[in-house]
């Protein structure tokens, strides 16, 4: 029972971690309110589904989702967001518009019924006497790997140093020769690819429908704000708190009530720790 709960919590936390990671970079670090972040998750899930249906390979779908997500992020940055870095309200409105266009576009193309995604790894594994779906373990591992890779890029690469410099002081970054617009573009492309990767990886566990992104946008913001905007460890802390609490409450009370209770707990935390659990 306890072990089952622990594994369910780990799955939930992993899903939140994957979905919120891109938002932690774009919103938490770069201070850009990208309302289309959820739709990038949707696009990742749809890409994985389409590629799997046509090629038979889920993993090829995951790779394709990363590429499509990066491309959509690139178009979004070059076509829209780069003109609005100095106008935060403009970014919110414009990306909200994009999110509606993507939702309705997918609805027109694919209809409201869920897309088919087969679990790439079937069957269960017995852990301490309890059966547990293998794919969920893969998902947990993928979440750990993804956050580790992101941490390495942020802390150990030249790009990471450039980005950390631009985030802290854009003017000084330019003064020391860093092309801040280019760095922001790559960061946004990377974060979009991460969102699409998240969508592809969670696709076998959820209903892949055009409006699914909206279900992830709000929890992602909670994770980033509760965890602490501006730090990767904050994303882990936020995901653990939101995901853990929600899974535990789901055992006791109806889902809608557990969602509300988690939201109240988040509000209480932000009241006492306005900069989050693990701020930068």
């Amino acid at each position: 029972m306890y072990l089952e709960a622990a594994l369910n919590i780990a799955t939930m936390v992993s899903i939140l971690l994957l979905v919120a990671l891109g938002l932690a970079i774009v919103f938490g670090l770069m201070n850009i309110l990208n309302m289309a972040h959820g739709e990038l998750v949707t696009i990742g899930a749809f890409t994985a589904s389409l590629v799997q249906v046509h090629s038979g390979s889920f993993w090829l779908g995951v790779v394709a989702a990363i590429i499509v997500g990066a491309l959509v992020g690139w178009v979004l940055e070059r076509g829209l967001i780069r003109y609005l870095y100095d106008r935060p309200m403009g970014v919110i409105l414009a990306t909200w518009g994009v999110s509606l266009i993507i939702q309705q576009g997918l609805l027109l193309l694919f209809g409201p019924s869920p897309q088919i995604v087969y679990t790439p790894i079937e069957g269960s594994i017995t852990l301490f006497g309890n059966p547990y779906p293998r794919y969920r373990l893969v998902l947990i591992a993928a979440a750990v790997l993804t956050i580790a890779a992101t941490a390495i890029v942020m802390n150990r690469t030249r790009f990471g140093l450039d980005l950390r410099t631009v985030i802290q002081n854009r003017e000084v970054a330019e003064l020391v020769g860093i092309d801040s617009r280019r760095i922001f573009m790559f960061a946004l492309v990377g974060a979009s690819a991460l969102a699409a990767l998240a969508g592809a990886l969670v696709a076998p566990l959820i209903k892949v429908v055009p409006t699914m992104g909206a279900d992830y946008l709000a929890p992602s913001f909670f994770v980033v704000i509760v965890g602490g905007a501006g730090s990767l460890m904050g994303v882990v802390a936020g995901s653990a708190f939101i995901g853990g609490l929600r899974t535990l409450l789901d055992y006791q009370v109806p889902t809608t009530l557990s969602q509300a209770l988690v939201l109240i707990a988040a509000v209480v935390i932000v009241r006492f720790r306005p900069r989050g659990l693990l701020p930068a």
């Binding site: 140093l161 450039d162 950390r164 410099t165 802290q168 002081n169 003017e171 000084v172 970054a173 003064l175 020391v176 020769g177 860093i178 930068a280």
Partner: peptide
């Protein structure tokens, strides 16, 4: 214009772009 939350070494490393 020191970047306060970077180490001293990283402040210098960041500026290597200017070369």
């Amino acid at each position: 214009g020191i970047i306060g939350k970077l180490s001293v070494a990283d402040n210098l490393r960041a500026a290597m772009r200017a070369a």
